[in-house]
């Protein structure tokens, strides 16, 4: 029974310096409704937390939110129990972060997809419209029918941001292409309803679309399944989802929430963490389109060339991608 523990002890002893700071540094992360295994947004955050855990050996405290009142309660508890930094994942958490961060000015906070203007909060936002633009271009280039689809989770500003960028990308390649846009629902179940996602994708295929992009969390799993079943193409979201259906997933609009979480933890530990807004786009490698062994055959060299050109142009400011602004 004792034998497996000895290497562990040795490892701890070897990284004595780390162990000492591990005792002081206590990071925490609060996931949103989707849960840490949504294969998309929250999971991406959890990948970042896992990476930090693995590389430093420091335990990361985690919590998955179940109802709205829990947010403040849990953040307060993390703060009270001596968390060094608390990362809140998702736009819905911004107001809770604002309340709790005021009560605990010595604790560091970071909110992803939200904006909180306090001296101890870092607000990380992504330019999702830029990766959506590239995915729109890829969809338009890959489409044979001249119509493509978009399945969103809920009709909220964040998802409109994806949709607007996607439309602009499609129009950039072929202004005449038609874009079908559907939202899944109006309840939180909209993010966790693969069967509805699959139905929406099928209806868009029925109307002639042959590529469909989802920005719908776990609902997107159904969208991608429907595309794979129909022998058509889908585009993943947030995490790199190319591996889910090799040969059917054209690309993914990757949002490097994992890098953001990892960076926040690392900087906080090193003492270089800074409060304030941080916006991550193509230029900062915060968002991108994915290209790996699973979709290599789907993205032709011409497509890749054009996408990379557009990417460079967006970074250089030659292409301006429209950004959805809430009313």
């Amino acid at each position: 029974m004792n034998s497996p523990r000895i290497p562990l002890l040795l490892a701890l002893a070897a990284t004595g310096a780390c162990a000492a700071s591990a005792a002081d540094f206590s990071p925490a992360i609060v996931y949103d409704f989707g849960g840490k295994f949504d294969r998309s947004f929250n999971q991406s955050a959890s990948v970042g937390a896992e990476r930090f855990k693995k590389e430093t050996g420091i335990a990361v405290h985690e919590f998955e939110i179940q109802n709205a009142s829990q947010r403040e309660q849990i953040m307060r508890q993390f703060a009270r129990r001596g968390a060094s930094i608390i990362v809140a994942v998702g736009f819905t958490q911004a107001s809770a972060v604002e309340t709790v961060a005021k009560e605990y000015p010595d604790v560091k906070f970071a909110v992803i997809d939200g904006l909180v203007d306090l001296p101890n909060v870092e607000s990380i936002n992504f330019r999702e419209q830029e990766s959506s633009f590239l995915c729109g271009m890829a969809a338009a280039m890959a489409s044979k029918t001249g119509s493509v689809g978009f399945v969103g989770g809920m009709d909220i500003p964040l998802i409109r941001k994806f949709a607007l960028g996607y439309r602009a990308g499609v129009a950039y390649v072929n202004p005449k292409d038609e874009v079908f846009e559907n939202m899944t629902g109006t309840t939180p179940a909209a993010w966790t309803n693969p069967s509805e996602g699959s139905e929406l994708a099928k209806s868009q295929f029925g109307r002639g679309a042959d590529v469909v992009f989802h920005a719908a969390g776990a609902t997107g799993i159904g969208v991608m399944q429907a595309a794979a079943d129909a022998g058509l193409l889908s585009i993943g979201c947030d995490s790199n989802q190319d591996y889910l259906h090799p040969g059917s997933v054209l690309t993914s609009a990757v949002k490097r929430v994992d890098v953001a979480v990892y960076t926040v933890f690392t900087e906080a530990r090193a003492g270089t963490w800074k409060a304030g807004p941080r916006v991550l786009g193509l230029a900062e490698d915060g968002v991108d389109y994915s290209l790996d062994e699973y979709n290599r055959k789907l993205v032709t060299p011409e497509m890749e060339k054009r996408l990379n050109q557009a990417k460079a142009d967006i970074i250089a400011g030659k292409i301006s991608v429209p950004e959805y602004k809430a009313p």
């Binding site: 904006l115 009709d155 109006t186 809430a326």
Partner: peptide
Amino acid sequence: ASALMTYLLVNVLIKPGQQSPE
């Protein structure tokens, strides 16, 4: 009800200049 409330929160009642429909 949830369709109505989502519509109102996203388009009408939302606090100007923010992402979250509140």
